[in-house]
């Protein structure tokens, strides 16, 4: 017996529901409703699943990206959103301007010392659960600018990254692949461990009192949030 059969032919109908269904759809089943999903579920309106699995499925398929452009990669990211590549096909195409409405952050570009604390702040403002796609070589290691005096050697120094998309810049196809991989992971309920000890925003007063901190003591208030870059220890 095909699963496409209407419910009443499986269970034996009662008059009122037949009447309602006929009134709604006319005779027989409207084959516009046929789909893989319907085949899987039959005409039964019940889906049995675990709630957290369901939530993961929902999260994976409805991702709100943060509208966040940093450098060259952001141009390819815009191309991924725009016509032709249209990442909205995968339910991830509506960039949100406010971090408070977003759950995926694509980091598209080089992070420099001045921007590091700001990026951390934007990341902190996103509601849980949140995911990060690192786009391009700069977010992996600093990329072509790794040797720069001002360049943070990878986004993972500051925030945890779930998916790395390599390239300089990655093609839109590569970014889409990365986002799909992220969806897969979210649906399976996986998340990344933090593999590098991130730079943190700290109270200036809490920093160890070394030479540099002593020197800056007049300029910076004790309660100010600061990020301390230890360039010599960078991986």
């Amino acid at each position: 017996m095909s699963n496409d059969d209407p419910r009443q032919s499986i269970e034996g109908s009662t008059a009122p529901s037949t009447a309602t269904q006929d009134a709604r759809m006319g005779a027989g089943v409207d084959d516009r409703f046929n789909s893989k999903l319907r085949e899987a579920f039959g005409a039964s309106p019940f889906i049995l699943t675990k709630f957290d699995e369901f939530m993961n499925w929902v999260r994976g398929n409805s991702m709100f990206m943060l509208q966040f452009g940093i450098a060259c990669c952001s141009i390819e990211m815009i191309h991924t959103y725009a016509i032709k590549h249209d990442i909205d096909r995968y339910g991830a195409g509506v960039p949100r301007a406010s971090p408070r409405q977003a759950d995926v952050m694509i980091v598209p570009g080089t992070i420099v010392s001045k921007f590091g604390p700001r990026m951390k702040r934007v990341y902190d403002q996103m509601p849980e659960p949140k995911f990060v796609v690192g786009m391009g070589s700069c977010t992996i290691s600093g990329g072509p600018f790794q040797e720069g005096y001002n360049v943070v050697k990878g986004a993972e120094e500051i925030i945890p990254v779930d998916i790395h998309v390599p390239g300089c810049p990655p093609r839109p196809e590569a970014l889409i692949y990365g986002v799909l991989k992220l969806q897969e992971r979210i649906q399976n309920g996986e998340s990344s461990p933090v593999v590098v000890k991130p730079y943190e925003l700290e109270r200036f007063g809490d920093l160890e009192r070394d030479e540099l901190v002593q020197k800056l003591a007049d300029e910076i208030d004790e309660d100010d949030l600061v990020m301390r870059y230890n360039w010599a220890d960078s991986p």
């Binding site: 590091g116 208030d221 100010d224 990020m227």
Partner: peptide, 17 residues
């Protein structure tokens, strides 16, 4: 940083104020 005796490995502190 582009002057002669700059040491790139020295730590730096950046504020969010």
């Amino acid at each position: 940083p582009l002057s002669g005796d700059y040491d790139q490995d020295k730590p730096q502190v950046v504020t969010l104020s």
